[in-house]
Write a protein that binds this DNA or RNA. Structure first.
Lengths: 121, 121
DNA sequence: AAAATAATTTAGAATTATTCTAAAAAAATT
DNA sequence: AATTTTTTTAGAATAATTCTAAATTATTTT
């Protein structure tokens, strides 16, 4: 675990904003006083492979990263693209009813207008 | 509505397999005896904008297209990447309970092993 | 702790998927 | 049928990501 890798993991862990690779690069670059973009990608992959972070992918939306493995959904603001986590009790039971127990994981994204954007609308 | 556009729409509509842009290009190319890849992208966008098709995006997965606007989830096979539709009764009610009624759309993808891949496992 | 081995980082080139450009062709309108 | 608008096309351009191979850093062995 190099300082680059530790920094990247920390950035993903410490921020609920779910950054893009590019944003993580900028933050890491500042914190470390220099890092290669390739290193950021390397480590995002390494950390993903190691099961320490997860990727968030959605339609027309740059991939972001999340460090929580507690099952949850993502709310995506249609205006500012801010991502927030949400809990959906009973979802897995519902899913089992629909397709049985043979699934291994799920991705759930919901589009909305976040509070900030609703106020400024 | 040109024959290129009609062909692309037909490919997306007539096939449950949810093709990628590249696959659609190959199929359209055969059917029409020549088409430009740029035209395929142009039309996938135009059709998406027009609300005639939807895009399916997931982690580590090339975008695919779907012509159904009946709300439903997508099952993605972890081995062969085959995509199948599924219904999940009561999901929207559950979602409303969790986050209220302010959402506009959702994407739901579930990873599993499809029947074929389970047999060949 | 020094030497040897393995893993990581880096800059920049390469790749992939997609978008842009500007001219040609086709379709729609007058 | 002529004019205007839209679409198609090939190829160039772009953006995001991955690859490469040398340099650096970390880890293991001695």
């Amino acid at each position: 675990m190099t300082k680059q890798r530790a920094t990247i993991l920390d950035i993903v862990r410490s921020d609920k904003a779910h950054h893009t690779a590019e944003e993580i690069y900028h933050i890491a670059n500042e914190r470390l006083g220099g890092i290669s973009l390739a290193t950021v990608y390397n480590n995002l992959h390494a950390l993903e492979e190691a099961g320490l972070i997860r990727r968030i992918t959605a339609e027309h939306f740059a991939d972001r990263y999340d460090s929580s493995f507690v099952p949850h959904g993502h709310l995506i603001c249609e205006r500012c693209e801010r991502v927030t986590d949400f809990n959906i009790d009973g979802f897995e039971a519902l899913l089992s009813d629909a397709i049985g127990n043979s699934f291994s994981s799920y991705e759930l994204k919901v589009r909305h207008l976040c509070t900030k954007c609703r106020e400024n609308a």
